[in-house]
Design a binder for these strands. Structure first.
Length: 326
DNA sequence: GCAAAAGCGACGAGACTGCC
DNA sequence: GGCAGTCTCGTCGCTTTTGC
């Protein structure tokens, strides 16, 4: 099946199952209603790399009375932050076992105040820890989460002279990292499924470009170069998610989502979305990596999807030597 | 408890296309 | 073809956090 067929297949799937339209309409209304409360609560404390805040659609929806943020290290949840009118507390109840197993962290926090000394020790522990995980890990997904997290940090930089790729900013929810959900499962490259609220999340959702030429960009991340799963497979997955974003923006609640994604104007008549595969290349430079799809475009009605790649080197700790068509 | 460093919002300049 | 509109990026100054 070629890419145009994959796009058509995704569109057909989304029009056959229209359940998502109402659901995403309600999500958008809830998110917009809570933006002020999330922002004002979020302003009460700083982020502390290499720990980062993540918010889910569910927590954003319930933020009115209590804001819950997931604190992640290398993309893995290590604590939960609770913010309400009276206090800011942090807990590792759910994560303590894995914190010890994966990172040798034995600091347990039991819903204690954010300003306690123990909490600053918890932050310090991760700040001065070598950016790696213990070897007993059976779950390979974690490497992908780390690459994803490192890419997000890289893309979030504001000073252009320290950025590997200029003109890119992740879509965030009031300053928090945010996994954009979709109602489709595209992770099995053989079969696309409609998955209701259990669909795949977009690995990295960003705005790329400058000025008027700023486009929403779906980035599918892989943690290694695997000939059995070539860049084009990851690209197709990104395209399928981009088709969903296109359908979402062209639905009743599209204008709301466009605002949530960081734009202040109206949705352009001709909307351009970008789909990107991002993956590390092997060290030995032996692989003649596929760039054939660079800047290829596919029409969906008046709109279009443009294909790109981001390749880089990854040594298990950091990313370097970026190459991109963006 | 205080000074230095880091985080972060506000605002304006620069960049760059979409639309008339 | 040109300019208005709308982004990213740079700078500034305030706030939070760290380190001693």
């Amino acid at each position: 099946m070629n890419i145009a067929d994959k796009i058509q297949e995704t569109q057909d799937l989304l029009s056959t199952h229209s359940e998502w339209k109402d659901r995403y309409k309600v999500y958008a209304e809830n998110l917009i209603a809570n933006i002020d409360v999330i922002k004002s609560n979020r302003n009460r404390f700083n982020e502390f790399p290499p720990l980062y805040f993540y918010i889910s659609t569910t927590n954003a929806k319930n933020a009115k009375t209590k804001l819950l943020l997931d604190i992640r290290y290398r993309g893995q949840s290590v604590a939960t932050l609770k913010v309400n009118q009276n206090d800011i507390t942090i807990s590792t109840k759910k994560q303590a076992d894995k914190n010890l197993r994966d990172f040798n962290c034995d600091i347990k926090l039991n819903d204690i105040s954010w300003r306690e000394k123990q909490v600053s020790e918890f932050r310090k522990f991760f700040k001065y820890r070598d950016n790696s995980r213990n070897d007993n890990d059976k779950n390979k997904n974690n490497e992908e989460h780390n690459v994803e997290s490192l890419l997000l940090s890289e893309f979030s930089k504001k000073k252009s002279n320290s950025k590997q790729i200029k003109g890119i900013q992740p879509v965030k929810m009031c300053g928090n990292r945010f996994g954009m959900p979709t109602p489709i499962g595209a992770s099995d490259h053989n079969e696309l499924k409609y998955a209701k609220q259990y669909g795949g999340g977009i690995d990295i959702f960003a705005r790329t470009g400058k000025g008027r030429a700023t486009y929403l960009t779906v980035i599918e991340v892989k943690d290694e170069y695997n000939p059995k799963e070539p860049p084009k497979d990851a690209l197709i997955q990104a395209i399928q998610y981009a088709v969903f974003i296109r359908e979402l923006l062209r639905s009743d609640c599209g204008e709301n989502w466009y605002k949530i994604f960081g734009f202040s104007g109206a949705i352009p008549k001709k909307l351009k979305l970008r789909a990107v595969c991002a993956m590390p290349l092997p060290d030995n430079n032996v692989v003649n990596v596929d760039k054939s799809f660079e800047k290829q475009t596919y029409q969906i009605g008046c709109d279009e999807i443009e294909c790109h790649y981001i390749y880089f080197k990854y040594d298990g700790r950091q990313l370097y030597d970026f190459q991109t068509s963006l």
